[in-house]
C-alpha cells in the first residue's frame, strides 16, 4: 500500500535529512519510532505530500505521490489519507458532525448528504460521541476531542491513516484505550495504520517498525 524509497529532505539552511524506506501492505500496521528532532514529522509530511522530497519516491496505493502536484495532490491526499494529529484541532465554528462533513466538501466527493449523515452517525456511535454530534469542538472534553479527531480521520474511508504522536500526553491506561481504538477502527475501515511517535511504550506492540535516528549527514 505504501512504499517509500530513498527519501531525502532539506530545510533551508539546515543539514540534509535522509530517511529509511517505509513499507506497509494494505490493512497493515506500522510504527515509526524516533526521538524528538529525529525527523518523524518531516517523514510524515513527506509521505502525505505536505512536503516535497528533495529526492526519492513515495508511492501510495499505486500512485506516485511525489509526482503529483497542486490540486491533484490535494485531492489525492483528501481522498486517501486520514491524519490524527497530536493535538486535536477542529474548525471551531462548526459542530462535530459538520467538522466530519468537511473532508467530503473539501474533496467535492459528491456523496449524497444522507449517506454521509448515516456514516457520520454510525462512526460517532461507535466512538461514543453520538450525543456530541451537534456540540462545538471546544465543548468537548480532551478525550472526546481525541475520539472525534479519530472519527474525522476515518470518515472519508481513507486507505491510510496516520497518527502523529497520539499518546504522548496520555497515561498508560488512556494510551492503551486510544491505541486499541485506532487499531480497531482502521481494521474495520480496511485502512492501514501508521503511528508516528517517540513513545517507547508502543515499541513492543508492533512487529513492523521503522526507527529513526539522528540521521543528519
Amino acid at each position: 500500500m505504501i512504499a517509500t524509497s530513498d527519501l531525502t529532505f532539506c530545510y533551508t539552511g539546515s543539514d540534509l535529512l535522509t530517511f529509511p524506506n517505509v513499507n506497509c501492505k494494505a490493512g497493515g500496521q506500522l510504527l515509526i519510532l524516533g526521538d524528538s528532532g529525529s525527523g518523524k514529522t518531516t517523514l510524515l509530511h513527506l509521505i502525505c505530500g505536505l512536503l516535497k522530497p528533495l529526492s526519492g519516491k513515495v508511492e501510495i496505493a499505486g500512485v506516485q505521490v511525489s509526482d503529483l502536484d497542486g490540486v491533484a495532490l490535494d485531492k489525492f491526499r483528501g481522498e486517501n489519507i486520514g491524519i490524527v494529529f497530536q493535538q486535536a484541532h477542529f474548525v471551531q465554528s462548526l459542530t462535530v458532525s459538520e467538522n466530519l462533513a468537511l473532508p467530503a466538501l473539501m474533496t467535492k466527493s459528491g456523496e449524497s448528504s444522507e449517506d454521509l449523515c448515516e456514516r457520520t452517525r454510525g462512526l460517532l456511535k461507535r466512538l461514543r460521541l453520538e450525543h456530541k454530534a451537534d456540540s462545538l469542538p471546544n465543548e468537548l472534553s480532551v478525550g472526546e476531542q481525541q475520539r472525534a479527531s479519530i472519527a474525522r480521520a476515518l470518515i472519508h474511508k481513507p486507505k491510510v491513516v496516520f497518527a502523529d504522536e497520539p499518546t504522548s500526553a496520555l497515561d498508560d491506561k488512556s494510551t492503551e484505550a486510544v491505541i486499541s481504538l485506532l487499531e480497531e477502527e482502521t481494521r474495520l475501515a480496511g485502512a492501514c495504520l501508521i503511528i508516528v511517535t517517540h513513545d517507547q511504550r508502543l515499541k513492543s506492540r508492533y512487529a513492523d517498525k521503522v526507527e529513526l535516528k539522528y540521521l543528519a549527514l
Binding site: C48, V71, D74, K75, F76, F90, V91, P103, M106, T107
Partner: peptide
C-alpha cells in the same frame, strides 16, 4: 488565528483556491 484550521482543511484535500 485560524491558520491551523485552514492548514487542516488543506490536509483534508482542500485546494488553495477553495
Amino acid at each position: 488565528s485560524r491558520k491551523y484550521e485552514l492548514a487542516l482543511m488543506r490536509t483534508m484535500g482542500g485546494s488553495p483556491s477553495t
